Simulated assay, not measured.
Amino acid sequence: TQQDELDVAAQWRSFISEHSLDAVVCIAAALRRGVLNAEEAQRYQRPAVNLPAPWELSGLGQLHEGAQSADRLLCFGGD
């Protein structure tokens, strides 16, 4: 980024690290947008990975499990 631009991704990584949070990305939404971790890049024979740590791909099962044990659920954006 430019010197005067805010690096939002770096801020999220820092926040996640500081608070020991899970950084989970919906696998279906990610794949629709071409966002791949190493496993999915290999599965779809793509040459690059564009989902860096600490982000992890996961499905609805993990969301449901987390929602059942949490006292609140925050969602950002939507389709």
Rank of each mutant, 00 (worst) to 15 (best):
A67T: 04
A48Q: 12
I27V: 09
E65F: 03
W55K: 09
P54G: 14
E56N: 14
V8S: 08
D71Y: 00
A38W: 05
R72W: 05
S14V: 01
V24M: 14
A70C: 02
Q45Y: 08
A53Y: 15
I16N: 04
S58W: 07
L36A: 03
D22N: 11
N50H: 08
R43S: 06
Y44G: 04
L31Y: 05
L74R: 02
L51C: 09
V8K: 11
E56Y: 05
C75S: 14
Q68K: 03
E18D: 13
A70K: 00
E39R: 10
T1K: 12
Q45M: 08
W55A: 15
G66W: 02
A9T: 12
G61F: 01
G61W: 03
S17P: 01
W12A: 10
A10G: 06
D79N: 12
P47R: 13
S20C: 03
L74T: 05
D4P: 01
D22R: 10
A53K: 12
W12L: 12
A29Y: 04
I16Q: 05
L21K: 07
A10R: 08
D71V: 01
L73S: 12
S58N: 09
E40C: 12
C75Q: 15
P47K: 10
E18C: 06
R46A: 13
P54W: 15
D7M: 05
E5L: 08
G34E: 07
P52L: 12
R72A: 08
Y44R: 09
L74G: 02
V25H: 02
R33E: 07
V25C: 11
G77F: 09
F76P: 10
R33P: 10
Q45F: 07
A9S: 07
Q11T: 13
F76C: 12
A30F: 04
S14R: 07
S20H: 02
C26K: 04
S17A: 09
R33M: 11
V35K: 12
A29Q: 04
C26G: 06
A9H: 14
D4F: 03
E56A: 13
E40H: 12
E5M: 10
E40F: 13
L63W: 14
G61R: 06
Y44E: 08
H19E: 05
R72I: 00
L73H: 04
R43C: 08
G61A: 10
R46Q: 15
Q11C: 15
A10H: 03
S20P: 03
A29R: 00
E65A: 09
I16V: 06
E18N: 11
P54H: 11
F76A: 14
L6R: 07
T1Y: 14
L6I: 13
N50G: 09
G78T: 04
E39C: 05
C26E: 10
L60S: 07
L57W: 11
Q11D: 13
P47D: 15
C26S: 08
R33G: 14
